[in-house]
């Protein structure tokens, strides 16, 4: 039974694409068949995060318009062979996506994969609404910061109104993924606390990804963080989140960096 999950946020730059790549890789590592689909037509990034930018021949638009078959556009990851990418087009825009075309592609993906993760563009316009349209579930990526939280609240309202499931009177499973969380800054009140975010959004929490240099390093390497440095704090947080997505009961913790005696003694200077 395939599971279509949209990764969305409303606000840009909160970590949708990073999270799509990391969760997709973590699910695939657990043996699931995963397709990650880039809906950010015109501003694609997921190919870079997966280090597949030089292997893109056909893209989502080509498949939506029926120019090529789905298999021709899917790119298999070189490191995990159950992880596949359906890239977006960089030269077109969101108007090239049609309702029927997207419905057909998603239906086709459902027959081949366990998980279909749709990386939504920022905003609440056509690209974002099409990315969420056929979803069974949603991961709402939020930074612990007021504008991001309000935009997430807006997106949650749209998930309850504009998705196919919502229009049939069903509810789509929604989860919050908090990214770029810095416990020290939250303690000092410079950031919203986890409790604040949960109180405002009142949805189940999928995971808390700590702020980490590893995330930027991973994207520059073209590898999901769970592959570039599996022992790092964000990698462990994403792996936990993926297990929760699969229905496992995993204690909610904020993983921190494992520090050796040296870094403990010299703290930030050494980091």
């Amino acid at each position: 039974m395939a599971n279509v999950v949209v990764v969305t946020s409303g606000k840009g730059g909160v970590g949708k694409t990073t999270s799509t790549a990391a969760l997709g890789a973590a699910l695939a590592q657990a043996g699931e068949n995963v397709a990650v689909v880039d809906f950010d037509v015109g501003l694609r990034n997921l190919d870079l995060m997966l280090g597949a930018e030089r292997r893109v021949v056909f893209d989502l638009i080509n498949v939506v318009q029926g120019v090529v078959r789905l298999q021709q556009a899917l790119i298999r990851d070189k490191r995990i062979d159950t992880l596949w990418l359906l890239p977006a087009s960089q030269t077109r825009d969101k108007d090239a996506l049609t309702d029927e075309g997207v419905a057909r592609v998603i239906a086709d993906l459902r027959t081949r994969f366990d998980w279909i993760l749709c990386d939504s563009p920022a905003g609440i316009e056509r690209g974002a609404t099409l990315a969420m349209r056929h979803a069974d579930g949603a991961i709402v990526v939020t930074n612990p910061e007021v504008s991001s939280v309000r935009d997430s609240d807006r997106i949650i309202g749209l998930l309850d109104a504009k998705t196919e499931k919502a229009e049939r009177g069903e509810r789509i499973a929604k989860h919050i993924l908090i990214t770029r969380f810095d416990p020290a800054r939250a303690n000092r009140g410079e950031m919203l606390s986890i409790a604040d975010v949960m109180e405002i959004l009142s949805l189940p929490l999928l995971g808390i990804i700590p702020e980490s240099e590893e995330v930027l390093r991973a994207s520059n390497l073209g590898a999901p963080v769970v592959l570039s440095n599996p022992g790092s704090a964000p990698s462990r947080a994403y792996a936990d989140a993926a297990r929760r997505l699969m229905g496992e009961n995993v204690d909610m913790t904020v993983p921190s960096e494992k520090r050796g005696l040296f870094t403990k003694l010299f703290g930030r200077r050494a980091a």
Binding site: R150, D151, D153, R154, I156, G157, L158, S202
Partner: peptide, 8 residues
């Protein structure tokens, strides 16, 4: 019965 979300 549900929260009223931003924009609604």
């Amino acid at each position: 019965e549900n929260p009223v979300r931003s924009g609604q």
